[in-house]
């Protein structure tokens, strides 16, 4: 069910999304890490919902449990309480229906760009021609056609993350999870990558849950923002983002943008 693109951002974008199916329903999720020294409660009573085609950003201060939450959505960690439902099914473990992009560079270093993107398609056992078509399509999407035979060590940080995004999207996941994917990039590259991922979202409408501690990044990208409290992490507020649908860097200077940014900053400061 693809949602029509409305020319400007307005309430309808968000309201329309409300009737869409729910992809993530996390209710009262709790995560306690039992370490030798003490029990660390990373998340407590954390609830959120992500609908189909939404671009949701989760912001919170360092150590509030954003990565932990995302890892549990991916099935790489299990909650100690509460429930996570992804598309009507409880999460039992990691799987190709939820793609993940990490902050650290996780391309397979022994594979070329092309082979990395193809990896998930091979795992799905798609026919060769279909694999070729999808690989070509995503090489094009991430503008790395010239580098298809390059190895990860030959790529810049931004290029590596583009390949990682292409690799995750190529498997056509129901949900794309991103954990500060641009956190290690310089500000200029970071800005380009933000435009880039927003473009991809506008074109293909993947459902995205994107974790960051960069408020500006969250406001620029999201259709909806969840603001988390400090540890133990909990969703403090759900903020829909009513900004223009087509986002360009100069949006960051507009009053609406700055106001929203400040509002979230306040929230984070008054934890």
């Amino acid at each position: 069910m693809k949602k029509k693109a409305s020319p400007q951002g307005d309430r309808s974008e968000v309201l329309e999304a409300k009737v869409a199916t729910s992809i993530i329903t996390a209710s009262h999720v709790e995560k306690v890490f039992h370490t030798k020294k003490a029990d660390v409660t990373a998340l407590k009573d954390c609830s959120l919902e992500v609908l189909e085609n939404e671009f949701v950003c989760i912001v919170g201060t360092s150590g509030c449990g954003k990565s932990t939450l995302l890892r549990m959505l991916a099935g790489l960690d299990t909650p100690t309480g509460g429930e996570i439902i992804i598309k009507d099914r409880p999460v039992l473990g990691p799987g190709p229906d939820r793609g993940m992009v990490f902050q650290s560079y996780t391309l397979f270093p022994w594979m070329t760009v092309e082979q990395n993107i193809r990896y998930g398609l091979k795992e799905k056992k798609l026919p060769k021609e279909e694999q070729d078509a999808i690989v070509d399509q995503y090489l094009d999407t991430v503008r790395l056609k010239r580098f298809r035979k390059a190895y990860p060590k030959e790529l810049s940080g931004g290029m590596k993350q583009r390949v990682a995004i292409a690799r995750a999207l190529a498997s056509k996941p129901e949900l794309l999870l991103m954990d500060e994917p641009f956190g290690a990039l310089d500000p200029i590259t970071k800005g380009q990558m933000q435009l880039f991922i927003r473009e991809i979202w506008q074109k293909e409408k993947p459902t995205i849950a994107f974790v960051t501690h960069d408020i500006e990044e969250a406001v620029f990208l999201a259709t909806k923002i969840y603001v988390m409290s400090a540890r133990p992490g909990r969703v403090r507020m759900e903020i829909p983002v009513y900004l223009p649908y087509h986002r360009t860097p100069d949006l960051k200077e507009t009053k609406e943008f700055v106001d929203l940014r400040m509002q979230i900053q306040e929230l984070l400061l008054t934890n």
């Binding site: 793609g99 397979f108 990896y119 998930g120 498997s171």
Partner: peptide
């Protein structure tokens, strides 16, 4: 890196094959 193993899971690699598909080539 454990990240490589985890990312392979999210791309559909089975636990029983991750040694063969990820750990071996990465440590070769």
């Amino acid at each position: 890196p454990h990240d490589l193993v985890e990312v392979s899971y999210t791309l559909g690699t089975k636990r029983s094959l991750v040694l063969w598909k990820v750990i071996l080539p990465a440590s070769l």
